[in-house]
Design a protein around this nucleic acid. Sequence first.
DNA 1: CATGAATGAGTTTTCATTCAT
DNA 2: GATGAATGAAAACTCATTCAT
Lengths: 217, 217, 217, 217
Amino acid sequence: MLEGGLLMKKNSKEAIVEAAITLFNSKGYAGTSIRDIARHAKVNSATISYYFDNKAGLLEYCFIHFFERYTQKIEAAYTSIEKGARTCLKQLVADLLQFQCENSQLASFVYREMAVHSQVSREIMATYSIKEKYYLQKIFERGFEWDEFRPHSIPYLITQLKALLMMPFMNTFYMREVLYIFPHEKFFAQKYLKDIFAWIDHTLCSDIPMKKGKLIK
Amino acid sequence: MLEGGLLMKKNSKEAIVEAAITLFNSKGYAGTSIRDIARHAKVNSATISYYFDNKAGLLEYCFIHFFERYTQKIEAAYTSIEKGARTCLKQLVADLLQFQCENSQLASFVYREMAVHSQVSREIMATYSIKEKYYLQKIFERGFEWDEFRPHSIPYLITQLKALLMMPFMNTFYMREVLYIFPHEKFFAQKYLKDIFAWIDHTLCSDIPMKKGKLIK
Amino acid sequence: MLEGGLLMKKNSKEAIVEAAITLFNSKGYAGTSIRDIARHAKVNSATISYYFDNKAGLLEYCFIHFFERYTQKIEAAYTSIEKGARTCLKQLVADLLQFQCENSQLASFVYREMAVHSQVSREIMATYSIKEKYYLQKIFERGFEWDEFRPHSIPYLITQLKALLMMPFMNTFYMREVLYIFPHEKFFAQKYLKDIFAWIDHTLCSDIPMKKGKLIK
Amino acid sequence: MLEGGLLMKKNSKEAIVEAAITLFNSKGYAGTSIRDIARHAKVNSATISYYFDNKAGLLEYCFIHFFERYTQKIEAAYTSIEKGARTCLKQLVADLLQFQCENSQLASFVYREMAVHSQVSREIMATYSIKEKYYLQKIFERGFEWDEFRPHSIPYLITQLKALLMMPFMNTFYMREVLYIFPHEKFFAQKYLKDIFAWIDHTLCSDIPMKKGKLIK
DNA sequence: CATGAATGAGTTTTCATTCAT
DNA sequence: GATGAATGAAAACTCATTCAT
């Protein structure tokens, strides 16, 4: 994801973040040592303290680096709300899924570590999760209002939607080794997106009893 | 869950496992120290090595303790396959959900740590996940055969089903603090079960429009 | 050495001593754990404390078990002193060499550990080494007196004699891997004994050139 | 030997090695704790890991530090081979004896620990002991060829020569307390050297009586 | 006679961090 | 901007020993 592209020597800070994402993902935050990251990034371990103050600072940077862009996707997608709740939700899901695919390692460890660092999480949630919930709520409410979605408890709907969205990134090892699904591959996003759309169309909208058929775009 | 109830001195081994589950869940495996566990279990930290050899041994014990019973639930539920795939799957989902609720902390950390300990995971998967996949596959195939389920890629269906099943336990902090859903509470299982049934009935079975086939590409 | 021969079940104490000798020899006293010994002897580690009080007690037992018999050999050989100093010394060397071969592991580790456990060594020396020195001194003095041995500093002669006697057992690994000499093999004692006799005959006695002095630079 | 003399603060690495040599010698490798060494060297115990990775690394460093210089002495002495095998061998013995005296503690514990650490020993031997054997063999073969030495099995000759050379350093406690010989003292080397020369002259060369047989009983 | 459970003290090692350069 | 040296604290683990049985 941090492609580094051009030939110029990548700077230390980027190298550190890149190494941190890889290692935090594969060994967990607490299981990764500063020196491990330094070794991977080919910098001295003091350099990490230099840029991020301490290990927690590096984690926080990763969290923010992730959620800042994550939230932007949501906000951007929400602008299409006037096209209808279902369309808007599909747009949002499509964008988030793609974002996760492009940052699969980061997404993977961020989702996992969120559960463990209650202090950091609390702050993150106060800014990002609340925002996410706010927009999803808006969309759902609009969907109920305009009879697009079958009425239902919003928290439970969010749970299901996020479950479907996050699952493939929460245990990529299982996905790979047992199901032979590779979330970073080209076609995964396309195929899986249809499945989430199916949930939207059939379970969320439950359109059939709505009177008119032929739903899926 | 391991209530310990009575006043008699609980044996050390159980006390250790109990403490480990609590702490591994709240601080992660790598973030929990042996001494922390010992302190909580009110035993000397050498006692942990005595029973489980080392920290990894304790983790493995927890994994097996979880998956052994998890797999039993699946096998038990599968016996009702002759009542039809949908009924059987619902039975299985209900049993697993209840099992998770009864062991929510254990489930929570096991699912998370699975992603990090590839070596242990590999062995666990070789025995338990493969078995789980086998039974789910059987049920889905039966469902397709008898036209109960809309035909679809089995790995992708497993992904969704497991997503819905596991999600509430993978980030209980988020569930609690943002959505105000408490997975260990009485009513949660009942309510959430309906949602998974809805997915089965509407997205998996998509039952009404059975005549006009091929909705999903 | 502790042959155990007959079919009757070897008792625990013997099994412990046997295991201790093997392990102390290959890993050193400090490098061997009580539980290691217990595992090898197929007894519970508490049994060792039961018989020998503690680890040091087991070591001391080994030391005494060795030196008691070692000293007996010396005393026995010394009885032939009236046959002449050279003959007596040869007898003594032959007996000690054979004794060492029969107890090569025990000899090996006892010699090594003597250097490390100054407290125990001090006591051992006060009883056994002093006795050994006493007899050797007697033999050398008799040899000088009767013009069998070329006069020389007794401590330096003891040094050389003990050097030749102990060397093959002090680093059996080197003997085996570099020189391809196996001190526990049948023919070793025979061959090596001749070499020590050569030292006695030529260097200690230096018999032939008795008239023309000052050979040594 | 590492005198440290001047008042300037000795660097940590040297201080550690110095302390390690002293303590490994007096208490054995396994009997010495990292913290003991650190205390003696007046550094933090983590500093040892910093420089030598771990305790085994420190041991290995000592081994190499010893054998590197030991081997150099041999190679240097070997250059005098054209002056005759006996002269060359005496040179070699004199140099090694002096080297050992100057590094008596190091020599002492290295010889002892070699017997215990088979893995490290194997590697050391593959480089140093083999080299030593090679040169000794060359000298002996030359000695046989030119009729300087009485023909004999080379491994057995090496055994005796090394026995005489190493003995005073293998159990200095015994040397001191029983024989009252102090290998690090000025005169020891001079006096003991004569004894080894006597072995070379009389037992190895057995020069005078070349014509008339019946030497060895 | 012998042991399983449990421990306290000690071990090595790892780690994040600091600081002079 | 970046680092090598060094460290204090804490981690996991090992060990000899005890004690009730």
